[in-house]
Design a protein around this nucleic acid. Sequence first.
DNA 1: ATACATAATTAGGCTTACCTAATTATAATT
DNA 2: AATTATAATTAGGTAAGCCTAATTATGTAT
Lengths: 219, 219
Amino acid sequence: MASLAEENYLKAIYKLHEKKGAMVNTSALAETLQINAASVTDFIKKMAAKKLISYEKSRGVMLTERGRHIALNIIRKHRLWEVWLVNNLGFKWDEVHEIAEQLEHVVSDELIESLDKHLGYPKADPHGDLIPDAKGRFAKTSSKPLLDCEKGNRVKFTGVAEHSNSFLQYLTKSNIKLGDELLVEAIEEFDKSFQVKINGKERKLLSKDVVKNLLVVLL
Amino acid sequence: MASLAEENYLKAIYKLHEKKGAMVNTSALAETLQINAASVTDFIKKMAAKKLISYEKSRGVMLTERGRHIALNIIRKHRLWEVWLVNNLGFKWDEVHEIAEQLEHVVSDELIESLDKHLGYPKADPHGDLIPDAKGRFAKTSSKPLLDCEKGNRVKFTGVAEHSNSFLQYLTKSNIKLGDELLVEAIEEFDKSFQVKINGKERKLLSKDVVKNLLVVLL
DNA sequence: ATACATAATTAGGCTTACCTAATTATAATT
DNA sequence: AATTATAATTAGGTAAGCCTAATTATGTAT
């Protein structure tokens, strides 16, 4: 139904909406899709005509129910493929994004449901991002940035809020993995750096830029 | 490098050449790709300009070394994905073609090599078609149509020469699977139908249309 | 050798998804 | 309120891949 370009626009709109809330404007879309703003204006008018999004001229766009449904399906596929690449093919969590960007556009409901089953119906991808079910519903979670925790909290590291290769590779290098238990031993008021103990063993100092991108749940 | 359309043209040219030998003509390509002959003429001129094929006006086309290499890579990917779909995801051999037609265009050498390894470096796909290696080389095989065998021959069923769903489903229904041992008990001169014993148990009558599409190796 | 059928090509057009340059809205600043 | 900066839109254009209709090659049969 939706073309490759439409799928990419829908996904970008979904993610920008998720991050910034409210309407998504032309320049933000142009930036994330690496497409000229004039082309974006053009394209969103056509998408609005197809009822994939609602468009208020010079104001921005929002997903319709239909658009949201398609976006969530792409995200579902992307994350399932990432799980497969990491768990079954041995890729690292910083190596799977580009490949999943291609695989997410393969069209076959039977394939995706078989893959989901094959993987054991995972709830999250290798970065801890939740995987919506076939109807677009997410499991509930109470994760929050480590930055919002207090001294003495014991938490589990469940996801990242930043997906850049440099951040993922920093964590790998620092031997901090999804599922690790973190104990907040001290918080430096001045720069919001955190001293944490990892899995009751190693002690590490994490900068504010790091702790704001570590998502955790209280234990 | 090669676009989706180019990849499909290259694959079609490879397969038509394999089947008919010599040059591939415009109308055959148009027929298999389900594209108008005028469009094909247009497109092959552009592909020739890119040295993917050599083109003799009004005569037909042939793959260049580069074009052949790309075609074999697509075929390699297609067949590896088919193995995965059948062996790991539980699809039937008549259900995988359309999905593999999409997956074959995903671009990532690391992915394909990892997949190959994950699958245990299979030599053939679920229909018995040989899988070329990364350099485009096939394992040698001495398979031939069952039709060319003689009374008394004991053979192993290793592949099909016809990939239509109706033929694949006929075999499934008849409980004839890749790897089965067939004993030629009798050949009816009049209509070339074969009486065979399967795995030393069940006895079956197979029409000429069936035996010419069963590929076997002598035991 | 000529006529006919079939195959291939040329010419002109269309849609999708992009572009640049010019213009118009909107928001921010004085 | 007027100016300025930024964002968005409009207008006109391009390349890739397709189309139909008309024309030209090629091969076959008389």
